[in-house]
Design a protein around this nucleic acid. Structure first.
Lengths: 251, 251
DNA sequence: TAGTGGTCTAGACCACACC
DNA sequence: GTGTGGTCTAGACCACTAT
């Protein structure tokens, strides 16, 4: 089952294709954990490509905790618990991964005045006076997990409707599909604090629960801030998990 | 001022050298922000190297928020606030970066019984009954920031002394210098909770402050868990900051 | 000694941006 | 067009791990 070469157009990148195929073999269990995968030279031959391209695909899988190379020995499949993403967190995906059913209730939605905090975080000029605001409660099934307040640097003509958001489920998916806004990177600040009265109510907090607060500025592929979001989570129902890697260079 | 070639021994990797030199030019301001750096082809010629090697160095600097490339235009220097590390957080460095003087007080230190939580996190076998435990309060100047409780998978013969830790300042530096234990990656779980009586005392917490709790399992370069640490921070004096990037592939 | 991953080269062609 | 970064190749040599 040798790979056929795809046309050299932009649609499919070779290292990306190979990345996906290897990932599939690991996810499916065809390549078992703690065992070596074929050598880089063999893979290059198998996929009609060069070692450089194979190495690029493998490099990605290492970053994601799928593989691990030992000089002189080979490249090993890591156990599933290593496979953490430190990509942009999506609560929708998080809840699904834990077997829950993501749901949400929209509390508020529409254009609103720009405050100083928002202007600073979204790097707005002084001509911009309104941003799109969405406040919603996120649930896993019927259990409230957190409150998300998003401010989006949208043009005043481009409205998002409640129906669209509820149908799509994920705000990022909607922004990408409808407006072509793709997230590139984000900076997150995580802190802890006591809940407000409103938060206690919305999240049905027990008396000993506090708020895990995460505020994020998301940059689009053009490196303009596209979103500022404050996420207030119930400390008992949400954990922030992240995987930190030292890359090959800093060793 | 062309670069002389270093010997092809292991001591200096070419792309690493180039990475450092470019980083230096950006840090020093010689290459100004929002302006382009020389083209990859020019850099390759300048450093007597190939484009591939230059690209590897630039890739690293992009991951760290130093540079940003636009297809067809060039590679730009990003403003300093983009330059966040999502490497292993070192509180010593964090405090220094904010102009504080890192200090610490050791509360407890020595070998201790292995509990179930520790056994699980450090993946210890049933023959291992003791681990090295360090509990210390971390300060910026005289202000307490957090309490660190570390459990280290050390051999019973390899003791760490209080003096060594205080002299070195950073536990990671000490582990690397004394025992050759190098950290490769870590998984962190961040949560929020109310403080215990002891924490209130140690951290001199105000009544409205809570605890930002971070627990981390650190893997060494051999991918064995080398450390489990619980970090309890004053919510008013510590923020957890992280930068999340989508790499080129997932766009 | 044979086989592995790690580094590096010199070149090719493509896609994109600016003139 | 010309010049830029993005992808890919085919090969070389090195360093490490087994046997």
């Amino acid at each position: 089952m040798l790979r056929k070469l795809s046309s050299p157009s932009k649609a499919t990148l070779k290292h990306r294709e190979i990345f996906e195929e290897i990932k599939k073999k690991i996810d499916s269990g065809e390549w078992e954990e703690n065992r070596t995968i074929p050598t880089e030279r063999d893979l290059a031959e198998y996929y009609y490509s060069s070692r450089t391209t194979i190495r690029k695909a493998i490099e990605r899988l290492k970053q994601r905790g799928y593989l691990h190379s030992v000089h002189g020995q080979g490249t090993f499949v890591l156990p599933p618990q290593s496979r953490e993403k430190n990509l942009l967190h999506s609560l929708t995906d998080d809840i699904r991964a834990k077997g829950g059913k993501p749901a949400q209730k929209i509390i508020e939605m529409g254009f609103t005045q720009v405050s100083d905090v928002i202007r600073k975080n979204l790097e707005l000029d002084h001509e911009t006076h309104s941003v799109f605001f969405i406040k919603r409660i996120r649930y896993s099934g019927s259990v409230p997990i957190g409150i998300h307040s998003s401010w989006l640097a949208l043009d005043v003509n481009t409205e998002i409707t409640e129906k669209e958001l509820l149908d799509t489920g994920s705000l990022y998916t909607l922004l990408e599909q409808k407006l072509g806004l793709k997230a590139l990177e984000a900076t997150e600040l995580i802190s802890a604090r006591l809940p407000s009265k409103q938060e206690q109510e919305y999240l049905a907090l027990e008396s000993n629960e506090v708020i895990l607060n995460c505020s994020r500025v998301t940059l689009s592929v053009t490196r303009k801030p596209m979103e500022y979001v404050e996420m207030a989570y119930s400390s008992a129902r949400y954990l922030y998990k992240t995987r930190i890697t030292k890359d090959n260079f800093s060793v």
